[in-house]
């Protein structure tokens, strides 16, 4: 469905060159569901915009849905859907009109476009606002309208640039459900970018981690986790002295794991850590180290990112919706 070779895009800003995308080689098969994950400015949108013919590559090639994005751009456009990072509906338009126009643009007859618009309005919960002027809609309602527009022609390949940004949890769940159904019913190939770590985790079978315009990891969320981050086991003891002793002379079982010690707590990061816990507790009990509590946290994709780059996806602050959305999953 998608095949890129050394796809590269530079921008010139104030006479300086910004290397937004630096040689991406990506292959996506029909029916796959891929999430592009990366911090702000990593080059996710730029990559998507090249794949959707919106931006000519500086160098390298990309074939999408069987056609070259630079020389056969119209053929590509006919076969894909794209939900951009911005709002796609005109402010002075009405949602339903925009949906119908969008359907017509993809070659649907007026009647078919109207019918399809009606279906999507109902299923995305837009019935009350579809006939209002777009500038009067809330951010989340506009986002759902964007999604409806991207789906109107039931494309075989769908690109979504941060589709769920601005949606409340219920609507995010609803969107994820929609995406899953698209795949199940139509076998749609889906490429999305997201800041929500849990979304990438739950939705995609394949996560492509992008940083500074390069792919730095590409695997299923489980593989990424097991290869690039371990489970985190936090043991709390009665006395700091005990914690120190355990940290200094860890049982052989957790040899090679990363061990940190802080007051009465010992934090152990180990692959497959959850399965080690029962045995670990037995050993510690034999050694007369009284464990007061145990907490096991499965690694998040943020931990993966942290281990890959030494930076957290979340650290650059409040404008990152993932800060609250992708909070720890506790096993």
């Amino acid at each position: 469905m998608i095949e890129t070779q050394n796809l590269t895009r530079h921008f010139t800003v104030n006479k300086k060159t910004v290397e937004a995308v630096r040689g991406i080689d990506l292959r996506v098969e029909a029916g796959e569901m891929v999430a592009l994950l990366g911090p702000n400015g990593a080059g996710k949108s730029t990559t998507l915009r090249m794949l959707t013919t919106l931006l000519p590559p500086t160098s390298g090639t990309a074939r999408v849905a069987g056609f070259d994005v630079t020389t056969q751009d119209r053929e590509v456009r006919r076969r894909i859907g794209y939900i951009g990072q911005g709002n796609g509906a005109g402010h002075s338009q009405r949602g339903r009109d925009e949906l119908i126009t969008q359907g017509r643009a993809y070659g649907l007859s007026a009647a078919a476009a109207r019918e399809r618009a009606g279906e999507l309005i109902a299923s995305l919960g837009l019935t009350e606002v579809a006939d209002r002027i777009v500038s009067s809609l809330s951010g989340g309602q506009r986002r759902r309208l964007d999604i409806a527009m991207g789906l109107i022609h039931a494309p075989g390949l769908l690109f979504l640039d941060e589709p769920s940004t601005g949606l409340d949890p219920q609507n995010r769940a609803n969107l994820q459900e929609h995406i899953r159904r698209l795949r199940a019913e139509h076998g749609t190939t889906i490429v999305l970018t997201t800041h929500y770590l849990d979304e990438a985790d739950h939705l995609a079978e394949r996560v492509v981690v992008i940083d500074h315009g390069r792919i730095i990891a590409d695997a299923s969320p489980e593989r990424l986790r097991s290869e690039h981050a371990g489970d985190r086991i936090t043991l709390t003891f009665d006395h700091a002295e005990e914690a120190r002793r355990v940290a200094a002379h860890p049982p052989g079982l957790i040899e090679g794991a990363r061990i940190e010690h802080d007051g009465t707590r010992v934090v152990i990061e180990a692959t497959g850590g959850a399965r080690l816990v029962p045995e670990l507790l037995r050993i510690l009990e034999k050694e007369n180290s009284a464990v007061v509590s145990v907490e096991v946290v499965r690694p998040t994709l943020d931990d993966v990112f942290l281990n890959l780059t030494g930076r957290s996806l979340r650290e650059d602050g409040a404008d990152l919706p993932g800060t609250t959305g992708g909070k720890d999953e506790v096993a």
Binding site: L54, I80, G84, G86
Partner: peptide, 18 residues
Amino acid sequence: QFEMQTGAHERMLVSPLR
């Protein structure tokens, strides 16, 4: 220009409209 700032123009551009 206004539609370029939102995403409306981009959405029209990515459609197969000539």
